[in-house]
Design a protein around this nucleic acid. Structure first.
Length: 288
DNA sequence: TGGCAGGGGTTGA
DNA sequence: TCAACCCCTGCC
């Protein structure tokens, strides 16, 4: 028996859905219509639309607890923002998209996405996510394929993964899928580990280095103090916070990132990242 | 239309 | 510390 589509309306405050879904943390969302997004929560295809003070969800078998955990609308955003450093750049980044949130995503899909992300742009990571679903996932609704379990990818071949536009990352993803299948690393156990230990554990996975591990900790395990330093954040820290110093080592940048932005540094980083990326796009479009 | 540089990172020497 | 990895995109 196929359950019917249902609808859930949830009141939300301070939530910029577009910025949140489009800020390089999740790769399974696409615009389905004006203000309506199509994507996945808890392995189920859903649609979400922003009303004036609410979200309207449509889908089959949705659970409010799962939606709440994924979208994190209960987090007190202004309390989080109050922990950010009070400087000109942070103020500008927060003012640019004040309702930007950090989602709580499925660990495995986050691992796979960020292994795929090495030297890739957001749109390309989205393409890979889609290709993996179509090639290896289950069709839950016409045109909607679930993200494949690691056991499925572990049984595939590097060649098959390369057909999903993974390039040299295909090797990394298939080895990681096999490591998980063999129980070499447990994504479930990481949930309760202290952050440093969790990071070491994630780095055991092939294709996961420090930056990718930090993304996984922030976007899948809710470790809000973890700041992934990618080239955007590195560039931002160099130009915004060390404008006069010529030689600032990478180590110094990482140390600065992990202390300066405070107990919710990962959140702060996401505001800077989104502001820099889209501001540049806006500048490119409006350039005379 | 085609050639070319370069990219949100990791690995292994 | 640095080249190699693969391929898509944007630019000329």
């Amino acid at each position: 028996m196929v359950s019917e589509h249902s609808q859930i309306t949830q009141k939300v405050n301070d939530y910029d859905l577009a910025a949140t879904l489009n800020s390089g943390q999740a790769f399974c969302w696409e615009l389905a219509g004006p203000g309506e997004w199509r994507g996945w929560v808890d392995g189920k295809p859903i649609r979400v639309q922003r009303g004036s003070d609410c979200f309207r969800f449509r889908g089959r078998g949705m659970e409010i607890a799962k939606l709440s955990r994924y979208f994190q609308w209960s987090e007190d955003l202004s309390a989080i923002q109050r922990t950010f450093p009070d400087d000109e750049w942070m103020r500008e980044a927060v003012a640019y998209s004040p309702g930007l949130r950090i989602l709580r995503q499925d660990p495995w899909e986050t691992v796979a996405n960020f292994i795929s992300s090495a030297m890739k742009q957001v749109s390309q990571i989205q393409q890979i996510n889609r290709a993996l679903r179509q090639r290896f996932g289950r069709e839950m609704e016409p045109g909607c394929w679930s993200f494949p379990h690691w056991r499925v990818l572990a049984q595939s071949t590097e060649e098959m993964l390369r057909e999903c536009k993974l390039g040299f990352r295909a090797k990394h993803l298939i080895v990681t899928a096999r490591q998980l299948t063999e129980g070499e690393v447990s994504l479930e156990k990481i949930e309760t580990m202290p952050t440093d230990q969790a990071r070491e554990e994630l780095i055991k996975l092939r294709g996961v280095g420090r930056k990718v591990a930090n993304c996984i900790l922030l976007f899948a395990y809710g470790r809000m103090d973890v700041v992934p330093v990618d080239v955007w954040i590195e560039r931002a820290i160099r130009t915004l916070y060390f404008p006069k110093k010529r030689k600032v080592t990478d180590k110094r940048i990482r140390e600065f990132a992990s202390t300066y932005f405070g107990p919710n540094g990962g959140y702060a980083q996401q505001y800077l990242f989104h502001w820099l990326r889209t501001r540049e796009k806006v500048a490119a479009v409006t350039r005379e």
